[in-house]
Structure formats: structure tokens, C-alpha cells
């Protein structure tokens, strides 16, 4: 157990190092640098002065060494774009992206899982056909397009605020603040959650169909349980062995989609931050954001694996 845990930890550190180094080195391979992006091509002297101040005049190997030393000591460097320590910028954005990802996972699960249980256990019902049609539709819409359509709908109807994270009128009470944040979260979260729900519905339905053929339901029904109790208390827990691993894959696609969705809805998260960092050639910021995104993903994936291992101890031992 201890060996496995330490192996995991070493792998996680290696992953973070790879993501961060890739971000730091890649940004500086291209011609031009942060000073050029900041000042522009005209003012040569100002650019050279800025370059010297930022330490950009040193060779890449030296800069990388400096950055890596900083990372080991707990500092992720200084952001040229925001003129603040990278850690401070990341702290704010990380919370926003984590909120978005968790909201999407939650809404996607609450929609996808019950619908999948229903369509898996009622193979010929009319409701099942509607559910399958809807999930076939939503699984084919990239999050970018869904975000655009949702923005259009909510702007036309005026039901939900579009863009950003906070409303124009500063909410005075705590309740007002919560409502304001939630209403801004709805569009980006739905754009990510609906394709997620479609995938989950599909997986859950198949898992339920497989489990139902195991006669679990028949056995429970023979002991006098209601159909609902047989499905939810006996068949559904068995199906989780198939459904939970899918979350690991979904979490990855969630972060991929978040970049596009955050760009459309102006949600100030990690995806938009990475985009800004690429545009501004801000190497330390990009490296930090890549590391944070990787870490967030790893935490979610590990959490799901732990959950799967808790449900079924056999899955944990062979990996």
C-alpha cells in the first residue's frame, strides 16, 4: 500500500514537472518574447530595459534553471502580464475553474445517471427513445458550439446573465452574491455538463442493461422488494463498476472543453488564463497554469479512482 502510494506520488510529481517544463520551454522557443509582446516592436531601448529587468537577456537554460529552483522553493515565478506573483493569480483562477468543473460534473451526473438508469431498465419505453435521441444530439455538439448557442438563447430571452462572473450591480447581501455567482455559472456549466450528461447516460444505460441480465432485479423482486428499490438498491450499485472509470476520461475532456467555454462566456478561469499567457508570451504564467490544470485533473481522477476502489476493493489492487 505504502509502495503504491509513493509510486503514485513520484508519478504525480513527474507529471507536474513535465507539464510545467513543457509550458515554460515551449513558450520561449518561438521568436519574440514577453518584452516584445508588452512593448511592441518600435521602442528598442524600452524593450531592452524591460528585458533586462525581467531577466530575459539570460540564455534559456539559465532562465529554466532559475524557474525550476523557484518552483522547488514554492514560488512559481513572476507574471509579466499581471505584474504579480504567478501563485497569486493562479489562486483566484483555480477556484473559478474548479467551481466550473465541479458544477459541470455535478449537473452532468444528476442528469445523466438517473436518465441512464431509466433508459437502461426500460428499453422499449417512449421516454427511453426521447432520452436516447437527446443524448445522441448532445454528444455530437462540441462544448464550443453549445456555449455559443446557450449564450444566444440566454441573451435573447434575458433569463440568464451572459459573460463574466459577476453582475454589474454589486450584490450587498451574501444571498444576493450567491445568486449572482450561480446565475453567471449556469451558462458555462451547462455547456460543459450537457455533453457530459449524454456520455454518462449512455454508459449508465448499458451498465444497467448488463446488470439487469444478471437477474439481480429478479432475485430482489422475488424477495418482495418494489421494482424501484430493486433497481436503485441492488442493480445500480453493481453498475458503478463500469460507470465510475468513465469519469476519469470525462474529467480530461472537461478541462479541454473548459478552454473554449471560458473563452466564449468570459469566465475568468484557468483556460482563459492559459490563452492570455500564450498571447502575452508569459512563460512563468503558462507553466504555472499548466501545472495547476494538471494537478486539478489529477486530484479529480484520483478522487474518482479512490471512490471506485472504495465501492469495489478489487479494482484498486491490480492497477
Amino acid at each position: 500500500m505504502l509502495r503504491r502510494l509513493s509510486l503514485r506520488l513520484v508519478l504525480a510529481v513527474a507529471l507536474l514537472w513535465a507539464a510545467g517544463s513543457l509550458g515554460f520551454v515551449m513558450t520561449q522557443l518561438a521568436p519574440g518574447d514577453a518584452a516584445l509582446a508588452d512593448v511592441g516592436p518600435g521602442a528598442v531601448e524600452a524593450r531592452e530595459a524591460l528585458r533586462a529587468r525581467l531577466g530575459l537577456d539570460a540564455p534559456l537554460s539559465v532562465r529554466y534553471q532559475r524557474w525550476l529552483t523557484g518552483v522547488v522553493q514554492g514560488s512559481l515565478g513572476h507574471s509579466v502580464l499581471f505584474e504579480r506573483p504567478v501563485v497569486d493569480v493562479l489562486r483566484e483562477r483555480m477556484v473559478n475553474t474548479a467551481a466550473l468543473a465541479l458544477a459541470a460534473l455535478l449537473v452532468g451526473s444528476l442528469l445523466g445517471v438517473p436518465l441512464g438508469v431509466y433508459s437502461g431498465t426500460h428499453p422499449s419505453a417512449i421516454g427511453t427513445r426521447c432520452i436516447r435521441g437527446a443524448s445522441a444530439l448532445f454528444v455530437s455538439i462540441p462544448s464550443l458550439l453549445l456555449a455559443l448557442v446557450l449564450v444566444l438563447v440566454s441573451a435573447r430571452t434575458g433569463w440568464l446573465p451572459v459573460g463574466g462572473m459577476t453582475g454589474a450591480a454589486a450584490a450587498s447581501s451574501l444571498l444576493g452574491l450567491i445568486i449572482d455567482r450561480l446565475s453567471h455559472l449556469t451558462v458555462p456549466a451547462l455547456a460543459l455538463a450537457l455533453p457530459l450528461a449524454a456520455m454518462l447516460e449512455h454508459t449508465q444505460a448499458q451498465a444497467m442493461a448488463d446488470v439487469s441480465s444478471m437477474r439481480v432485479i429478479d432475485g430482489a423482486r422475488a424477495r418482495g422488494l418494489s421494482r424501484r428499490a430493486a433497481v436503485w438498491r441492488h442493480a445500480w450499485p453493481l453498475s458503478l463498476g463500469t460507470v465510475l472509470p468513465v469519469y476519469g476520461v470525462l474529467a480530461g475532456s472537461l478541462f479541454g472543453g473548459a478552454v473554449a467555454v471560458e473563452a466564449v462566456t468570459a469566465w475568468p478561469g484557468l483556460g482563459r488564463l492559459m490563452l492570455d499567457a500564450v498571447r502575452a508570451r508569459d512563460a512563468a504564467l503558462l507553466a504555472g497554469a499548466a501545472m495547476t490544470a494538471t494537478a486539478l485533473l489529477a486530484v479529480i481522477t484520483q478522487g474518482i479512482e479512490a471512490l471506485a476502489a472504495w465501492r469495489d476493493p478489487r479494482t484498486g489492487t491490480d492497477a
Partner: peptide
Amino acid sequence: VLPVMVVAL
């Protein structure tokens, strides 16, 4: 394991 769009970026 890395998010696709992050790698692409």
C-alpha cells in the same frame, strides 16, 4: 492524462 486543449495550447 494531460488535457488535450492544454497540450494543444
